[in-house]
């Protein structure tokens, strides 16, 4: 099973999954978030078409309280 860095932490994921699949496993469907893969933003309309593979660095961010 491939290992990704998700938000700075190593995480095993099932093989052959896309950003969209991963979002479902993280319970983020329908929420507001943004994804960066290896330093590049993955727009919402590309989530289903973007495959994840070993060593990818993924950032998943949301809006939180702040000034």
């Amino acid at each position: 099973m491939p290992v990704l860095q998700i938000n700075g932490k190593p995480q095993q994921i099932p093989p052959n999954i896309t950003v969209e699949n991963l979002i479902a496993t993280l319970h983020l469907e329908g929420k507001r978030f943004a994804i960066e893969l290896n330093g590049e933003i993955v727009p919402k309309n590309r989530h289903a078409a973007t495959a994840l593979s070993e060593g990818d660095k993924l950032e998943v961010v949301i809006a939180v309280g702040g000034g």
Binding site: N7, V64, G66
Partner: peptide, 12 residues
């Protein structure tokens, strides 16, 4: 204003 932060992976 809001801040942008990493989501807590494995959150409820």
């Amino acid at each position: 204003t809001v801040a942008i932060r990493r989501v807590n992976i494995g959150q409820n």
